[in-house]
Design a protein around this nucleic acid. Structure first.
Length: 572
RNA sequence: CGGGGUGUAGCGCAGUUGGUAGCGCACGUGGUUUGGGACCAUGGGGGCGGGAGUUCGAGCCUCUCCACCCCGACCA
């Protein structure tokens, strides 16, 4: 490829709107152009990376027996009504009518299509397990796209679906794909990534893992134990409970005047937050009449993802202006509100000597003993894990890090095969709904994640395995005929063996060299009157900055060795 | 959807108390240069996000709509 003809320009100034490193460099180096919020065109260099990532994914999926298929982007309403998701999914799914007034939708995931494809064609346990996968465009009308390619509305995704006849066999296969994912991310040059336990969300099912690239710009919080193997998404993370026991006293109403916040009440009563009961109120989204009140120990915070799962509906923090509750004085005793679901966090179980609101202006109640003063209370885990709390496995302090979700795998169970009525015959003649698992990787997000992780102050630094070109061929002084002739000759011979981006422009050395660095091509080959006088070329390794002078006769071989060496490292 | 911010040339930006749009980069042409974003000359390109209003006159004021960015909600 000649750079003079390459569409897209390298910019000196960065776009002021792009404040995430990967986004900024991808724009500046001519990889991306935004069309509108959350929707991008990818230029040739980016598309070349996409294809390389896709091929690595393809190889690894095929290696565990995957069969590549292609589902439609557009699906009819009926297919999604069967699984129930036509109604349970909100505005993220684009719905529209075709010319015959038929309800259609854009696929944002393809469990329904996968079951549709396999039901009635797969009839026997004997045909299981198997996995089908596709690499295709997904459209999700995200509420808030952000950070360039990290969160977008339209993206290419590899999604895979496996089918199983029993749990044991499913888990065996799930483990294989888990290992395969580790391989894929390693091969595309991702370094600081981990797999964590995650919430299965509205995908349903029980066991799920997310592959996370650890980075400060990540959208997810991950709880990690530095001492053992415990790693979990904040949404599902738990910590070991430590419960101090306070003196068991009679409960007593006390005047607390204007003390409203936990902090103010603690100061006034001379206790610490751990001895208080905090109330957090939620409204159920789309339902004005019902309220949820969550009680939790004052030193803790509510994990809304956990609470949402327990309630089974969308919740949002509620403004109390239209309820009978007294803000700052809400308590768990004598709380008789209609249409209210009350939830108690596990942190309150067996606690005594606690302070809570009195449900009237200016008063709190001291000495609450939850076992004694409340009847029929079930305590559930709705607490958010905090940095420094203790690991549920080994009991040592936990840390919290940020991560980008680069892949996910879910054990779905029979959620879809049951609702869509897919059955197979078992050896004893009975019919069962097969178990399913699904596995996703966003290709564009993987590209951006590698960019986020692999760059320096000069620009991008692509791993050899996914670099748009292996070599940036950079002759200096193209006005010099001897250079130009040699350049054209070398371009021909190098192109036979390597992926070459040929900087054929007659511009100053500075422009060429900085462009090569900004674009992040792993190897740069420079020739100039100076180097040619010694019959040499200069090779620069982008990653390390190392420079090697090389006789032109040995150029092919040296380049081959450098490329192979990095590829071997990436492939492990 | 809530809060904050920004829209002026392809990109980055300036534009005074309202007086009829500039700068740098990029691009075209001619020339001099050439191992880390060269220089001289010259040329082309926008009517200031859209609409309405105030005014003799609006990029600057008012109203309204829109788009984009950031934080939050959401995120299969």
């Amino acid at each position: 490829m000649r750079i003079s003809k390459l569409v897209g320009e390298r910019l000196k100034d960065s776009a002021s709107t792009a404040n995430v490193k990967s986004h900024n460099y991808l724009l500046r180096a001519g990889y991306l152009k935004q069309v509108c919020n959350g929707i991008f065109s990818m230029l040739t260099p980016a598309q070349r990376i996409n294809l390389k990532i896709q091929n690595i994914i393809r190889e690894e999926m095929d290696a565990v027996g995957g069969q590549e298929v292609l589902f439609p982007v557009v699906m009819p309403r009926e297919l999604w009504e069967k699984s129930g998701r036509y109604f349970s999914i909100g505005q993220e799914m684009v719905r529209f009518k075709d010319r015959n007034d038929h309800d259609m939708l854009l696929g944002m995931t393809h469990e329904e299509a996968a079951v549709h494809l396999c039901q009635n064609t797969i009839k026997s346990y004997d045909q299981l397990p198997f996995m089908i996968y596709q690499i295709q465009t997904k459209f999700r009308d995200e509420a808030r796209p952000r950070a360039g390619l990290i969160r977008v509305k339209e993206f290419t995704m590899k999604d895979a679906y496996s089918f199983h006849y029993d749990k044991e066999e499913l888990q065996e296969f799930y483990k294989k794909v888990y290992d395969s994912y580790n391989k894929i991310f390693k091969r595309i040059g991702m370094k600081n990534f981990i797999a964590v336990k995650s919430d299965s969300g509205m995908m349903g099912g029980d066991i799920a893992h997310e592959f996370m690239l650890l980075t400060d710009i990540g959208e997810d919080s991950i709880v990690i134990c530095p001492h053992c193997d415990y790693k979990a998404n904040m949404e599902v993370a738990i910590s070991k409970e430590i419960k101090p026991q306070f003196e068991n006293t009679e409960k007593k109403e006390v005047y607390t005047a204007n003390a409203k916040t936990i902090e103010e009440v603690c100061k006034l009563l001379n206790i610490s937050a751990i001895q208080t009961i905090k109330a957090v109120c939620y409204a159920i989204v789309g339902d004005d009449t019902n309220t949820v009140i969550a009680f939790i120990r004052g030193d803790k915070e509510v994990n809304e993802a956990k609470l949402k799962k327990i309630i089974g509906k969308d919740i949002a923090v509620k403004d109390l202006s239209d309820t009978g509750l007294v803000k700052g004085n809400i308590g768990c005793l004598n709380l008789n509100l209609p249409n209210t679901t009350v939830v108690f966090d596990k942190s309150l179980e067996d606690m005594q000597g606690m302070a809570t609101g009195a449900n009237k202006e200016g008063y709190h109640i001291k000495g609450v003993n939850l076992k004694r003063d409340l009847e029929n209370v079930e305590f559930v885990d709705i607490a958010k894990v905090k940095e420094g709390e203790l690991c549920p496995v080994c009991g040592k302090p936990l840390t919290i890090k940020r991560g980008i979700e680069i892949g996910n795998i879910f054990q779905l169970g029979t959620k879809y095969t049951k609702s869509m009525d897919m059955t197979i015959n078992m050896p004893d003649g009975t019919l069962i709904n097969p178990l399913m698992a699904c596995y996703g990787i966003g290709v564009g997000r993987a590209l951006a994640s590698v960019a986020e992780e692999s760059s320096d102050e000069k620009g991008l630094v692509w791993p050899m395995s996914i670099a748009p070109w292996q070599i940036y061929f950079c002759p200096l002084r193209m006005d010099d005929n001897s250079v130009k002739e040699k350049a054209e000759e070398l371009e021909k011979s190098l192109s036979n063996n390597f992926e070459l981006l040929y900087d054929d422009r007659n511009v100053s050395a500075g422009i060429k060299l900085t462009d090569s660095e900004l674009m992040g091509i792993p190897l740069r080959v420079v020739i100039s009157p100076r180097s040619l006088s010694n019959n040499e070329a200069e090779i620069t390794i982008r990653k390390s900055g190392e420079k090697i002078m090389c006789k032109l006769d040995n150029l092919n071989e040296l380049l081959k060795n450098l490329i192979n060496k990095e590829m071997e490292e990436l492939n492990g």
